[in-house]
Design a protein around this nucleic acid. Structure first.
Lengths: 127, 127
DNA sequence: CCGTATCCGTGCCGATACTG
DNA sequence: CAGTATCGGCACGGATACGG
């Protein structure tokens, strides 16, 4: 995502944006969620997230590894085996995501009610 | 909340996804951030977020209003005036986002260091 | 001033085939 | 098993022009 200027949150080189952007993609949170349950192999993650393609899983894991949130461990066996696990950093990050998820869960009824009650304003006709 | 496997996060009508998806788009967090400072008119938000187009601002505000996070108040004056402000729900939501932002800020150095240290694994050559 | 309508480019993601 | 390579669709968002 392009960086934006002039904001406490969004200035260039913005640490917030670096992190929040990852929440926007389709799989990151899911993968973190699965790894929060413990170390998993590539295929094990695939099975748990039924409709993720190998391409997207690899890409997601790579980025998490790059950012130090996930540790990748390769065993030189045949057939090959690769374990993925959250790092301490990854765990602490996922904790915050869970807090957000908790909020969403707690207030979902209010959001749904608001959506229900919402009536679109007449186009270009304030009052 | 015990995000459970398969998946409280991804199922349809999922409360978590409803919320997290909004963090993925380019402007929502920014707009919330600006409104957290107090009520603003449409144009005032535009000025503060310099490169947002009227289209995207309107769209973002509409969704926030729909979800009950922002309240829209129209004054039948000439020229027209429309105020936007966070609701209590919106404020409590933004608090959680700030917690996440705080985490990002606190750990940005670690993430940057991890990115720096990262070396891509050789393609298809585990060890 | 406060938006909407329209067009269009870009990048995410899915599907699939293939390799060490 | 653990990925990579390639192609293509489609939604998201940018730019612009216009309307109440």
């Amino acid at each position: 995502m392009t960086l934006h200027r002039q904001s406490l949150i969004l200035t260039e080189n913005c640490p917030i944006r670096d992190v929040l952007d990852r929440l926007g993609d389709r799989w990151t949170v899911l993968v973190l969620h699965e790894l929060a349950g413990g170390t998993l192999r590539f295929t094990e993650v695939r099975k748990r997230i039924a409709d993720i393609s190998p391409r997207m899983l690899a890409q997601t894991l790579r980025r998490l590894e790059q950012d130090g949130l996930v540790r990748r461990e390769v065993f030189p066996t045949v057939p090959p085996r690769v374990d993925y696990a959250l790092t301490a950093l990854g765990s602490s990050f996922f904790e915050r995501i869970e807090m957000l998820a908790q909020w969403a869960s707690d207030h979902h009824d209010e959001v749904r009610a608001a959506r229900q009650a919402y009536v679109a304003p007449a186009a270009n006709a304030p009052l």
